[in-house]
Amino acid sequence: MFTIGDFAHLGRVSVRMLRHYDAVGLLLPAHVDPASGYRFYTAAQLQRLNRVVALKDLGLTLDQVRVVLDEKLSAEQLHGMLSLRRAELRQQILADESRLRRVEARLRAIEREGAMPTDEIVVKPVPAVRIARLTATAASYQSEDIGPVIQPLYPELFERLGRAGVTPSGHGIATYESAEGDQVVVRAGVTVAVEPSAAYDFEVVDLPALAEAASIVHRGTMDGVDTSYQAVAAWIEAHGYKQNGFAREVYLNYGEGDPADWVTELQLEITKP
């Protein structure tokens, strides 16, 4: 048998926690010395300790942990519960990281307020381009609404292109349109060189040429794109232009390698009022 200190060390918990588990009847010592009151545990009790700690990490209260343990869950059942919780925690971490990137982007935008971009914006014509695309609807144009909608579209699009034997001939291009209320129609596309066909389970369309577009190159993930959008907005207003519709996002280098090196061109159609 092991002293409470040794058992705590082996189980990677505190002595205080073991005493609390004893007090609430969740993990009783195998033996208590009647003279000294010292608690002793067996190696077999580590199994119950592992389950207690794991269930606590799932977010259960100690009363709920006791109920679950009394039902004598199998190792397989407990593994399934922990795997689900692990997936939830990973998703939460990803969401928190995305939120942090958006906060950082807003901070950068605030820091740049009043600093007018001069050489970042290029005015140019954009030729018509043929793309294959899939469409979905986002709740709004906020990054946290757009990202979860557009991100699954591209793997699905490339899978469908592969099944159809169609090879992309250029960059990915995303376009957006207003929908009912705050909703936005999201279209994830990629340049192709094939004719439209009813046999495809995706659209093949021609994006029209833009006579004039204000273009800015954004570097990094799209979580930080707000700074680039606001820079081009300031330039458009300062130079007396009017923006027509949403920007096209041309993914020149996106999704591979260091995210800091990803490159997206934003193309906003502009006209003189």
Rank of each mutant, 00 (worst) to 15 (best):
E113W: 02
E113V: 07
E71T: 12
T118V: 15
P34I: 07
Y38R: 13
R48E: 15
I110H: 09
D96P: 06
S98F: 04
L62K: 05
P117W: 08
L27S: 03
T42V: 08
L78K: 04
I110M: 14
V129E: 06
R108Y: 00
E111W: 00
E97P: 00
R48I: 08
A44V: 13
E120V: 00
V122L: 12
E97S: 06
L55H: 04
I93R: 12
R101T: 06
A115D: 12
S83A: 12
S36C: 07
H31K: 12
A87Y: 04
A43P: 11
L60Y: 10
M116Y: 04
Q77E: 14
Y41P: 01
A115H: 10
Y38V: 00
I121K: 03
N50M: 08
A136D: 05
A43H: 10
R90N: 12
S83V: 04
D96F: 03
L55I: 12
L27M: 12
V65M: 02
Q47M: 05
L107P: 00
Y41Q: 08
R48K: 14
E88F: 01
R51N: 14
G37D: 08
R66M: 07
L28G: 12
H79C: 05
K72D: 15
S140F: 05
Q64W: 04
L60A: 10
T135L: 07
A44F: 01
P34C: 12
V123D: 01
L89M: 14
A75Q: 10
R133N: 10
I121S: 02
E97M: 12
A30T: 02
V123P: 08
R133S: 14
V68H: 01
R101D: 07
T42I: 07
P29Q: 07
L73N: 03
V103N: 05
A43T: 11
T137E: 11
A109E: 12
K124T: 15
S83E: 11
P34D: 11
Y141L: 06
V103K: 03
L107F: 06
E76W: 00
P127M: 02
T61P: 02
